[in-house]
């Protein structure tokens, strides 16, 4: 039996630019709590700056 403590992935939605609810997906509490403590407050996924190309270029 795994000794990982799993929690709802939705708890960590704030790092995603577009938030969605995925109640079926559980993630490792220890790992994601540590990540949330260490990631910058304004960290967002995906990286829309890179994905929108260089300034002045047509958007994808």
């Amino acid at each position: 039996m795994s000794n990982r403590f799993m929690v709802a992935s939705d708890l960590y939605n704030r790092i995603f630019t577009v938030q969605s609810s995925n109640p079926e997906v559980e993630v490792d509490y220890v790992i994601w709590n540590r990540l949330f403590a260490l990631l910058p407050r304004d960290y967002q996924l995906p990286d829309n700056t890179v994905l929108s190309l260089r300034p002045g270029d047509p958007k994808l």
Binding site: Q19, N22, V27, L51
Partner: peptide, 20 residues
């Protein structure tokens, strides 16, 4: 340990540019 979160939250609907 990290990918399931990204696979769930990032898809063609929530991040279309990523999946272009």
């Amino acid at each position: 340990l990290l990918r399931p979160m990204l696979d769930a939250k990032l898809n063609a609907n929530t991040a279309p540019a990523l999946f272009s």
